[in-house]
Design a protein around this nucleic acid. Structure first.
Lengths: 352, 352
DNA sequence: AATTAGCACTCCATTAGGCAGAGTGCTAGT
DNA sequence: ACTAGCACTCTGCCTAATGGAGTGCTAATT
């Protein structure tokens, strides 16, 4: 595992590299003759065939049938991206396009959408961006409105301008004005704190001697508890350009495509996959079956977490066939993640 | 146009009917011999061939090639659904499933989703439901929060529990408490009225002598104008089961499927198509090119508007290949529309 | 006059055979 | 250690042949 170049000499690696590059650009199994011409080291096809046989034994390449050339396996791609890849710097046109579109906008959600669209359009594959999780959600305002039957609509604003709403069920019927007062009270004591902090404070306040509080205060805090209890863990992502995937012959079989799209609407598997990249810093790559999901056997995922104020808040990336131009995609995803992170509003700074 | 059975006798119609039914169930071009056995009228294949030739002249059926059977054209389907179709009553199991799932829930948006999913699952095609437009949106509550740089976050609640938010740009910088007062003032004078009414009232109030009002009132009303000016016309729909369409061989060509899916994400064409059914009452059907969009040449759309309090507020339906089981789909869409309409909260009744 | 039987014809789908091209593995020679 | 050569294999493509399904037309029947 640790030693990923078992007994491969430089020559074999060089050949594997050109093979993968060639296959990525052509999409055809590459044979010994082509490889002999393509590579800089002057070797006869016969020699190359020997090397290929070795590579095949190691599970790095494989032949669709006896008299076809070789194509890289997942392990082959893996070795390629880990040790052999020479990344290409971003195209200037694309870079400026990124900069132009990912400059700060007022609306974060808008930015997420833009980023996803850029990923999809520039790579011509599917682009995906998770909605940023913000541990440091700062409560700005809370408000209650009465509905029928002890149901109460709670609206709260976090950070700059994110509006959340939710229906809670109360023990007793409270009038509109009572609710309003409750809101005012909560605003006065919790505003400006992070949601986590508020949650803690609520618990503490409820447990501590409730003597000092009057009934109205107690009611207010109980409602706050209801309002914030669930983490509102709306794990979600913005996916664009899925239809680009329909163009790839490798994901051809009708049924296969359906499974991929179902996974997209299902969301949970994808989320789980993306969550893994949350932990890591920088670009991460899942090649073929490495993802652990059968659906993505023929796909690769290039992702990167993105951070605001040095804190990882989300993941973005592209999904495409295993045969993708890693040397361009990888730096591209990397840059996009950095730019998006920079463009998002740094929510912690709420100057008093 | 008006006379849609030009010189067709009953026999021809009968034959057309069985032909369409047969084609719908088998998906194979149906030939004269099969038809002769299938139909109740005892005719020899030869006779049937003559009739078929007539039907072909009239453009009701067509032959993929010389020695294949006939398949209905769009006009053929049209005649079929208009005059020949014998609708099948809903399956009991499905009916009870509809009733069970479409009983009133608190959240309208949730209902829309459920309806869409039911449409897709039961028909095994794509289900679509537009977000209900409500002319009679009743304003329940409005609130302003300051952002930076003269930007103001406005939050307003309509009907039972629909929360909208929007950022507006103000002429001058107002403090949080000024904004709060403005909100309170607006609530006191406009609450309970429909959005349309509020819009009118705002204009009127602005034009009439502004002498009676103090500056704060004026500011408030100006902000109200900004808040409500755009109709917030977020025409939108909930689409489910798109992937079901991948199973149909008639929508096979890779490129074709991509176009359809692109239309789904594009949304505008679909919206436009659905808008047409808004006007009509009851079930409406677009067969093949009747939709007017090339993308849907091979598709049919069965839609129905749905109403709350006798007022049409939205459209729902299914999208599938032209070769679909109309006799089941039509009553199904019909019932679903009625049930959804009944289940949605009647927003006008806001008992004081 | 309407229907039907019969026949020649057309077109598709499948099968089989043949052939060229590409690529391999192996062996023997450099 | 490398390479040239050769036999072999598999694909893709073309062609031809065959059977089946269905038609259109004509002539016969009712």
């Amino acid at each position: 595992m640790a030693n990923n170049t078992p007994d491969l000499n430089d020559r074999s690696l060089q050949l594997l590299k050109t093979l993968v590059e060639r296959y990525i650009s052509d999409g055809q199994p590459v044979g010994s003759r082509l490889l002999s011409k393509d590579s800089t080291l002057n070797l006869s096809p016969a020699t190359i065939r020997n090397v290929m046989a070795d590579l095949e034994d190691l599970g790095l390449v494989h032949s669709p049938h006896t008299s076809a050339g070789r194509i890289p396996t997942s392990s082959g791609y893996r070795l390629f991206v880990d040790s052999l890849l020479t990344v290409k710097p971003l195209d200037n046109k694309e870079l400026s396009r990124l900069h132009q579109n990912l400059s700060t906008k007022d609306n974060d959600n808008q930015m997420i959408g833009v980023a996803s669209r850029l990923l999809a359009e520039i790579t011509q594959m599917a682009g995906i961006v998770t909605i940023p999780k913000r541990e440091l959600t700062c409560l700005r305002h809370i408000e209650f409105l009465p509905l029928s039957h002890q149901r109460v609509l709670v609206i709260f604003v976090t950070n700059e301008q994110e509006v959340h709403n939710k229906v809670i069920y109360c023990e007793k019927n409270l009038s509109a004005s009572e609710l309003q007062q409750a809101g005012a009270y909560l605003n006065s004591i919790y505003c400006g704190q992070s949601l986590d902090a508020v949650r803690c404070a609520v618990l503490k306040d409820l447990q501590e001697d409730q003597v000092r509080m009057n009934q109205a205060m107690l009611d207010a805090i109980k409602m706050a508890q209801l309002a914030f209890e669930s983490n509102d863990n709306k794990d979600d992502y913005v996916l664009t350009g899925e239809t680009n995937l329909m163009g790839f012959s490798e994901l051809s079989s009708r049924n296969h495509l359906k499974q991929i799209f179902d996974a997209f609407t299902q969301k949970q598997d994808i989320i789980h996959l993306l969550d893994q990249s949350m932990k890591a810093d920088g670009v991460q790559i899942f090649i073929g079956e490495e993802s652990g999901y059968q659906v993505f056997e023929q796909c690769s995922l290039v992702t990167s977490s993105y951070s605001v104020n040095n804190e990882v808040v989300g993941v973005l990336g592209v999904i495409g066939p295993t045969r993708m131009a890693y040397e361009k995609i990888i730096p591209f995803v990397d840059v996009t993640a950095k730019l998006l992170g920079a463009a998002l509003n740094p929510k912690t700074t709420t100057p008093s």
